[in-house]
């Protein structure tokens, strides 16, 4: 696989975006968005992480196999959290056996 050289301009642009998003997430946290504070904070964090993964870590220019590994890892983490959350979120719907 021939190597893709990313120009420093792209890195600097990503860097600026990351800094702006960091300022944005701090600002958003100080504003009362009701139930939306946490989703906004998470959305910004996911965006920042995606920028780092795609550009700094070259996934945008890498093989599909690497992208598959990244996607698989995220999917498995979400599986873990979803499965456990399924327990905690429904625990008080009815009494559990033995209580």
């Amino acid at each position: 696989m021939s190597e893709h050289i990313v120009s420093p301009g792209v890195y600097v642009a990503v860097f600026v975006a990351l800094m702006v998003l960091t300022a944005g997430t701090v600002f958003a946290a100080t504003v009362d968005l009701g139930m939306w504070n946490t989703p906004v904070a998470l959305l910004i964090a996911v965006t920042k992480a995606a920028l780092v993964v795609l550009f700094f870590m070259h996934v945008k220019y890498s093989s599909r196999l690497v992208a598959l590994a990244v996607g698989g890892g995220i999917l498995w983490l979400l599986t873990l959290i979803a499965g456990v959350a399924a327990d905690y979120l429904t625990r008080n719907w009815v009494g559990t056996p033995g209580t």
Binding site: W76, T79, G83, A86, D87, Y88, L89, T90, R91, N92, W93, V94, T96, P97, G98, T99
Partner: peptide
């Protein structure tokens, strides 16, 4: 095999609904 771990915890106090799933 990654989606079934809760079957070790049916009597642990885990939610009945999670147990069903």
């Amino acid at each position: 095999g990654f989606l079934v771990w809760g079957h070790h915890m049916f009597i642990s106090g885990q939610s009945t609904y999670a147990g069903l799933v």
